[in-house]
């Protein structure tokens, strides 16, 4: 049977398209929620970072270079963070654990589809929406403060950074999916999600560039997907990382994604065997 004849494959794409459209409609249905969660998300932390770095560099003296970074470069890094953090998949976009606790997964288990398609639709919707908002944020920043803003060094750098970001975001999504699926075993999952979100943010360079951290920490973190999802794409845009680095990052992300996918399948299959279908 060829791929085009396989009914499951025929169902996947139309269902993904329809479910993504549904997710988008759901997001914009609540206007206040949309502004607070989607537009406002990820704006505060970079501003806090900017204030902290301003104080640090001011105490270090005019034109100081701290572990290879000048203050204007850090301002550009923070500008990059505003966009990258928006597009990177966030745990709040996946409510699988609640669906498991409340037995809302039940209805999908008797349908001829893989529940994962709906989660992928959530990922697609989130990414499309946040990329749009991220582009808008970048445009506003470029118009308001062009002298401090981050402009990609080349089109190739832009494409490389975007690829890293999307693949890294997919890894984040898989991590959150696996953690959410732990709801088959655990009573509380949300605290775990918050903790992991913080670890990913820190290890990815959302508080300070990973390359500015102590060398031993950097050497460890550069093999993790968070670095290639947050810090590395910005450094690629700034021209601090070359094409060879992008290729290395993509390889690390691809291997990570493959491993996470295998774990996801095992966790989901074993979790279903424990499912009680609560509330029916």
């Amino acid at each position: 049977m060829t791929a085009s004849q396989d009914p499951a494959r025929r169902t996947f794409w139309p269902l993904l398209r329809q479910a993504t459209a549904y997710e988008l409609r759901k997001q914009v249905a609540f206007r206040v929620g949309f502004v607070v969660r989607e537009l406002g998300h990820g704006l505060v932390e970079p501003l806090v970072m900017l204030c902290v770095f301003w104080a640090l560099y001011r105490s270090a003296g005019e034109g100081a270079v701290l572990r290879g970074w000048t203050f204007p470069e850090l301002v550009q890094y923070v500008a990059g963070l505003l966009v990258v953090r928006k597009a990177m998949f966030h745990n709040r976009a996946l409510d699988l654990s609640t669906q498991i606790f409340e037995g809302r997964v039940t209805k999908y288990l008797v349908m001829p589809m893989d529940y994962f398609v709906l989660a992928v639709a959530r990922f697609t919707q989130y990414t499309l929406l946040q990329l749009g908002i991220g582009a808008l944020t970048w445009t506003i920043g470029a118009l308001v403060a062009p002298e401090h803003w981050l402009f990609p060094v080349s089109f190739g750098a832009c494409a490389g950074a975007l690829t890293l970001l999307l693949l890294g975001s997919w890894c984040c999504f898989l991590v959150y999916y696996i953690l959410n699926a732990l709801a088959f075993w655990l009573d509380v999952v949300w605290s775990l999600l918050v903790m992991v979100w913080f670890v990913i943010s820190f290890a990815g360079g959302a508080l300070l560039p990973v390359s500015q951290m102590p060398p031993v920490v950097f050497r460890v973190l550069e093999y993790g997907f968070p670095y290639w999802t947050i810090s590395a794409p910005i450094e690629v845009l700034m021209g601090r990382l070359a094409a060879a680095d992008v290729a290395r990052g993509l390889a690390i992300l691809a291997v990570t994604a493959a491993l996470l996918e295998a774990v996801r399948r095992v966790v989901w299959r074993r979790g279903l065997a424990r499912y009680g279908g609560a509330g029916m």
Partner: peptide
């Protein structure tokens, strides 16, 4: 999926 296509479940206390 072939069997699931021939099956339906209505739950009075849960919305499908």
């Amino acid at each position: 999926d072939a069997e699931k296509r021939r099956l339906a479940l209505v739950m009075g206390q849960k919305s499908q």
